[in-house]
Simulated assay, not measured.
Amino acid sequence: MFSAVLLLSFSLVSVCLTRPSANVLENDSLLAHESEEVRYAAIKRLLEVFGMEDPPHSPGLMKQPPQYMLDLYNTVADVDGVTKDPDLLEGNTVRSFFNKIHDEQVQYLFNLSTVAKKEKVLTAELHLFKMKPRATATFTRHHFCQVSIYQVLDVNSMNTSQGRKLLSSRLIPIHSSGWEVFSITQAVRSWAVDEHSNHGLLVKIRNLGGSQVEPSPVRFASGRDHHQSKQPMLVLFTDDGRRTAALESTLNDLNNDDPSVPSSPQGLKPPNSRSVRSLEYSEEDRLPCQRDPLYVDFEEIGWSGWIISPRGYNAYHCKGSCPFPLGQNMRPTNHATVQSIINALKLTKGIETPCCVPDKLFSINLLYFDDDENVVLKQYDDMVAGSCGCH
Rank of each mutant, 00 (worst) to 15 (best):
45 R>D: 06
386 G>I: 08
147 V>K: 02
144 F>D: 07
76 V>C: 03
29 S>W: 05
32 A>D: 05
17 L>F: 09
73 Y>R: 05
215 P>C: 03
221 A>G: 06
112 L>K: 10
206 R>P: 07
197 S>Q: 09
230 K>Q: 10
104 E>H: 12
23 N>E: 08
99 N>F: 01
213 V>P: 02
333 T>P: 08
29 S>K: 13
235 V>L: 01
211 S>Y: 11
133 P>S: 02
318 C>L: 03
98 F>H: 13
185 T>N: 04
29 S>H: 12
332 P>T: 08
315 A>F: 00
323 P>C: 03
21 S>A: 07
172 I>R: 13
289 C>F: 00
1 M>S: 14
192 A>S: 11
141 R>S: 15
120 K>V: 13
359 D>N: 14
93 T>D: 02
324 F>C: 10
90 E>H: 10
207 N>P: 01
189 R>K: 15
117 K>Q: 13
87 D>T: 14
301 I>Y: 02
321 S>W: 02
356 C>G: 09
303 W>Y: 10
129 F>C: 08
40 Y>Q: 15
155 V>T: 15
152 V>I: 14
305 G>Q: 12
287 L>A: 13
15 V>A: 12
52 M>R: 14
349 K>F: 10
165 K>H: 14
355 C>F: 08
384 V>R: 04
188 V>A: 08
21 S>I: 03
358 P>M: 01
40 Y>T: 14
62 M>A: 09
308 I>Q: 00
202 L>S: 13
376 V>M: 02
93 T>R: 14
316 Y>D: 04
379 Q>T: 13
64 Q>T: 13
21 S>P: 04
207 N>M: 02
379 Q>F: 02
14 S>G: 15
371 D>L: 08
249 S>Y: 04
105 Q>M: 10
227 H>R: 15
317 H>A: 08
224 R>K: 15
257 D>L: 09
94 V>E: 01
250 T>N: 12
314 N>F: 01
226 H>Q: 11
275 S>Y: 11
333 T>M: 06
96 S>N: 06
202 L>N: 07
277 R>V: 06
309 S>V: 00
377 L>N: 02
308 I>G: 02
339 Q>G: 04
175 H>Q: 12
65 P>V: 05
112 L>Y: 00
297 D>F: 03
131 M>C: 14
226 H>G: 04
129 F>N: 06
90 E>M: 11
214 E>N: 14
230 K>N: 07
267 G>K: 11
246 A>C: 07
156 N>Q: 12
85 D>P: 05
252 N>F: 01
365 N>I: 01
263 S>H: 07
117 K>E: 08
364 I>Y: 00
289 C>M: 01
289 C>I: 03
186 Q>H: 12
347 L>A: 15
299 E>L: 05
217 P>M: 00
322 C>W: 00
326 L>K: 07
210 G>E: 00
369 F>K: 07
226 H>D: 08
40 Y>D: 15
